[in-house]
Design a protein around this nucleic acid. Sequence first.
DNA 1: CGCCTCGTTGAGCTAGTTCAACACTTGTGG
DNA 2: CCACAAGTGTTGAACTAGCTCAACGAGGCG
Lengths: 256, 256
Amino acid sequence: MPSIQLENAANEASVSSTQFRAQLPMFPHAFTSRAHDPMPNVHVAKSSIPLDLNRLDAILSTTRKVRRGEVLYRANDQFNSIYTVRVGCFKTVVTHRDGGEQVTGFQLAGETLGLDGVFAERHNCDAIALEDSEASVIRFALLVSLCREVSSMQHHLLRLMSGEIVRESGLLLMLGTMSAEQRVAAFLLDISDRMKAQGYSPKEFNLRMTRQEMGSYLGIELETVSRMFSKLQKRGLVHVQGKEIRIVDRLGLSRM
Amino acid sequence: MPSIQLENAANEASVSSTQFRAQLPMFPHAFTSRAHDPMPNVHVAKSSIPLDLNRLDAILSTTRKVRRGEVLYRANDQFNSIYTVRVGCFKTVVTHRDGGEQVTGFQLAGETLGLDGVFAERHNCDAIALEDSEASVIRFALLVSLCREVSSMQHHLLRLMSGEIVRESGLLLMLGTMSAEQRVAAFLLDISDRMKAQGYSPKEFNLRMTRQEMGSYLGIELETVSRMFSKLQKRGLVHVQGKEIRIVDRLGLSRM
DNA sequence: CGCCTCGTTGAGCTAGTTCAACACTTGTGG
DNA sequence: CCACAAGTGTTGAACTAGCTCAACGAGGCG
């Protein structure tokens, strides 16, 4: 049963844009609430046009289960749908013709994937599950036609796409200007914020990606990621044990 | 007098996505044709719904002149409009709270700016003219309501935003994986393609930005840009004289 | 003319890479 | 159940691409 919370994104927006400090503006943008929402119900932000629930159901009817390491979609696949992560976590990877790979994002539960495909009607990256996951499938054509009738939906979609643009410019800023240490610190703060937004502890969490995947995302080598974790730990800012992270000094991290 | 060519973007799309090689996928996305279009007239792609020309005129009524070095908009400015470059050329710059700056794009005539502002209803970067320029102002609220009535317009807007996402992932790939030499080569090829798309020679052109601006965009220092130009010239791939560029061996460049 | 911004080149330095060794975990098949 | 292979993470040591600092030359403009 799909639950729609259109005002979700608006809340996240205000949080995120004021929080643009050391960490990156990688905003979670949910089209729907996450899987185990305690109170699944329907809200419509600002506009009080009643939503046609049958249509929404049609849009969200399918969910896809993707095992760890398998793809949700692949670059060059025909673009039909976007996806909302319900359970688990994904990475998106763009690949250069001569083998170069770059992780362009990690999507946690509640976040949206696949908008890159609108442009060429083909996906532009691979989306791969980092653990056994589930994603809601949203037929883009249906969504678009719904947007023409429900203006809040239209705004939401536009905001979602623009948010992705903003997120990526934050990444560009990071890759262009930050030291390895700053990148790792900013990464941890970003994940922490997003865990919090999902209702998990922002102080302690498990990273689902490998050092290599983090390194690719951050534009550095896996060894450097490892060394920076050790360094931050030595300074008493975090406690790292493999994939388990505990943030000890949040302020210190954000001041890097 | 505004001239609308909705099928423009579609043509550019097919060219760009097949051309994804060494160069970056930084596609030009025009909302309108460029300033001195030889045959200003109206086409509507796919859909044959007659456009309401008065509305389009309303949307495109204003143009803004911006002198070299002045801003079209600034980060945190209230977002009202997006812009199409009619004459000249801009850069977009995101700024970190502690001074770090990153050029996230250069917009040539015919290309679109400002979609980053949709997300937070505030602009996310500064847009600065690299020479005396003119931009058409497109009131976003008007555009959005027009999109609800004209489906080709809606698709065009969505493609435009998605194209920006794709362009930025190309940049991420570059910043994350390429050597300084490859970045400069890819940059020249990209500009070359875009000059060609504007109807200018793809072999000889003038760069409007400084070495520093290129460096920021490419995630390297200005001195490195200069050295790489010298290196590429020594190898007989390009001829560089200050801002004047001549591409000598296109294939060689693309194989870097 | 003199001032300023811009571009080029050199020389030394350093942050991060590369390569290599080793420990720990996870999954697989006998 | 163990054995063993494959993937992952940490740390060290040497290396190098690109940075930093510095000098100088060439335009543009009041």
